[in-house]
Simulated assay, not measured.
Amino acid sequence: MSDSKTGILAMIGACVIWGLSPLYYKLLTHVPPLELLAHRTLWSLAIFAGLLAVQGRLGALRAALGSPRAVAILGVAALMISANWFLFIFSVQIGRVTETSLGYYMFPLVAVVLGVVVMKERLGPWKWASVALAALGVAQLTWGLGAAPWISLTLASTFGLYGIIKKRLNTGPVVSVTAEVALLSPIGIVWLAWLHSHGQGVFGQDLQTSGLLAFSGLLTALPLVLFSKAAQKVSLSTVGLLQYINPTLQFLCAVAIFGETFTGYHMIAFAMIWLALAIYSGVSIAQDRARRKRPATSSAVAPH
């Protein structure tokens, strides 16, 4: 199998796991979100650290945490991703998966805005049009429901800020995420210790719940490893298009399986954001193809 096909399959696998993860978290609605987040952090650390140990790369983890500046950057990244994880878990438990799917549809467009504001990037007219169309969709939903879709906006913003912060790091995704959960793990340990000391911790009370909590580590680690593999083997435009599998599956879980309310205002907002994403993706694909053609042209005359 070619590297391209392997990468595409890896990306599809990652997005399917992410997209169907609400089904997993629905099985743990009896576990408080903070406790579930603490378990996800600790079990993720066990999986990631074990993976790095098998690969002989624990030294890379020590290097990633080797300076106060790196620790500070990773610490802020850890706060952003933990806030994102917590809100996602909480939203599933209270029956707001429709909003989580909307948030992950909005993420690429929010990331574009953050790139302009924080990184001083420039956008062409079509990308500005896609951002404006998405903003109109959110405004319409806010007007229709009488409240802004804060869950969607916060999920998209925290993940977008997380991406901006990660751009400042030179470490690979597995090493950086391992460092992030390592920084968060002392908080998780203290919180779980307090719960169990007061007889409130759920781990160990029954085999099914304990097994599901331990599984959260694999559920976190596996799609990230697949995503990292895909990013190395396929173009960014392909990765960008395939990532919409994730919110699409979340949306189907919300409406078809969980029976969440989906109003006409939701329908209009989703349609506008889908159209915005189609415009944005089409422009991104054209730009990616143009970039790939330029090196191919110059390589014929450049010395090797």
Rank of each mutant, 00 (worst) to 15 (best):
A214I: 09
E260P: 00
L224G: 02
K233W: 09
I279E: 07
Q200I: 13
Y162L: 06
V283S: 08
H198S: 15
C253E: 01
P223Q: 08
V225Y: 10
A231H: 09
S157V: 09
N246P: 04
W191V: 12
W194T: 14
G264N: 12
A286E: 11
L184A: 07
V190I: 14
C253L: 07
T220R: 04
V190H: 10
G160I: 05
L153F: 08
L161S: 05
E180L: 07
L236W: 10
G163R: 05
K167L: 13
A156V: 02
S284L: 07
Q243Y: 13
G211K: 09
A214D: 07
G163C: 11
H198Q: 15
A193L: 12
I187H: 14
L277P: 00
V177L: 15
I245Q: 00
G201Q: 09
G172S: 11
Q243C: 11
F270E: 03
G282D: 07
Q250Y: 03
K233V: 07
P247V: 01
Q287N: 13
A276D: 02
L249F: 01
S237E: 06
L219A: 12
A221R: 03
L207E: 15
A256Q: 09
V239P: 08
S210E: 14
I257Q: 04
F262S: 03
W191Y: 14
A254V: 05
G264A: 14
A271W: 08
T178F: 07
A269I: 03
A156T: 01
F270R: 03
S281C: 11
L226V: 08
N246H: 10
T158R: 01
I151P: 00
I273Y: 01
L242G: 01
F227C: 04
H198R: 15
L169G: 04
P223W: 06
S157A: 13
A156K: 00
S210C: 14
A179P: 04
